[in-house]
Simulated assay, not measured.
Amino acid sequence: MVAFSKGHGGGSDFIVIADPEGQLELTQAQVQALCHRKYGVGADGVLRLVRTNATVEGQALAAEEPDAEWFMDSRSADGTATAMSGDGIRVAAHYLLAASLARAENGRTLPIATRAGIRDVAPSATGYNVDLGRWRMTEGEPLAKADGLDVPRPGLALTVDGPHIVVALASKAELDSIDLARPPALSVDPDPTTSIEFVVPHDPLVKDGVGHVSMRVFERGAGETLGGGAGAAAAALAVRHWAGASAPDHWRIETPGGVLAVRMFPTEEGEHVALSGPAQLVFHGEVDLG
């Protein structure tokens, strides 16, 4: 039997398994079974937390940031490994702090190693704030077609802890009407980990210096999720790009699972994007992986 906790970050839910010494080798089939919403625990993904020095993937990162004691082995519901999860890392941080496996006191951040690199997480008034690092625009304007849309719509491709395509829709009614039970069709052959965000800017777009956007997301490997942390960051970056030079650097992204906050800020290595949102543990249990 393996002990686990179930948590969510703004509706995106995860199974968290502490494996400090890296003794548990989860297979793709086991992750799929755990995440199955009829026959398993049910989740958008699995987060296995391993001490950084106990995993080959984490050892190189430990040299970069010795204080990053924990490595987040993130898996999508289909069992594939993911580089990072903006919602998942908040849940991971909350678990580590709640279990007294890590500390983040006196305003200090909690560095967590991921396949995308070290990510700094800090408790905030709304839950947790995470620096997602540098982002970049990708060339091209792919077309995306979801069930419920009359014609394909152009999207903006970005990389924020993974590849994203952001598609603007005309109204909230159109956003509500699309069916994301099936993957949206794209005019390009995307990276298999690409997430697709459908967004509607509010009217007015900016209120009290903060941009407002509604979003739904289809995450490869998991399907539609209620949150979408890195997707919220991609949505904010895309709408800011479309809005022009006068657009703000602070954004409020409304998702089916709640509200996420996004902030862009300059650093010596280039502009970073940060994500703020809730994280909660809802129950604990044991499961037979056999």
Rank of each mutant, 00 (worst) to 15 (best):
T52I: 11
M1C: 03
E65V: 04
V188P: 01
I165R: 14
P123F: 14
L97E: 01
P190S: 01
V121G: 15
A279F: 11
G140A: 12
D78E: 01
R90P: 13
A102W: 06
A146D: 13
P142W: 03
A233P: 11
D150P: 04
S76K: 13
V31R: 04
L24H: 04
A247T: 05
L186R: 15
L289H: 01
A146W: 11
W242I: 12
I178C: 00
A233Y: 10
R252W: 00
T225W: 07
A236Q: 09
G10Y: 03
D67L: 11
H272G: 07
A230D: 08
V121I: 15
H8D: 09
P192W: 14
L26V: 09
A181L: 08
G211W: 00
T194E: 11
A238F: 02
A113C: 06
L226Q: 09
A62H: 12
R37G: 08
V273W: 06
L169A: 06
T114E: 07
T126R: 13
R182G: 04
E286F: 03
I112C: 05
Q28L: 03
R51W: 07
A33S: 00
R51E: 12
A125C: 06
L149M: 13
G127F: 13
Q280N: 15
M215C: 11
E271S: 05
G88N: 02
E64M: 05
A232I: 08
H241C: 11
A62D: 10
R153T: 10
A235G: 00
L149K: 10
S195D: 15
W70S: 13
F283G: 01
M84A: 03
R51P: 03
R75A: 12
R240L: 01
C35W: 01
G223E: 03
P201E: 06
T225E: 01
H164A: 06
G86C: 01
R153V: 12
L226P: 02
S177A: 15
L110R: 09
P111Y: 15
Q32P: 00
A144P: 05
K172Q: 14
D67P: 00
P266G: 06
S124A: 04
V31Y: 08
V160W: 10
S5R: 10
A232P: 07
P66W: 10
I118V: 13
H241I: 09
Q32V: 02
A222G: 03
R263D: 08
D208K: 07
F265R: 14
S195C: 15
E65W: 06
A235Y: 02
S187V: 14
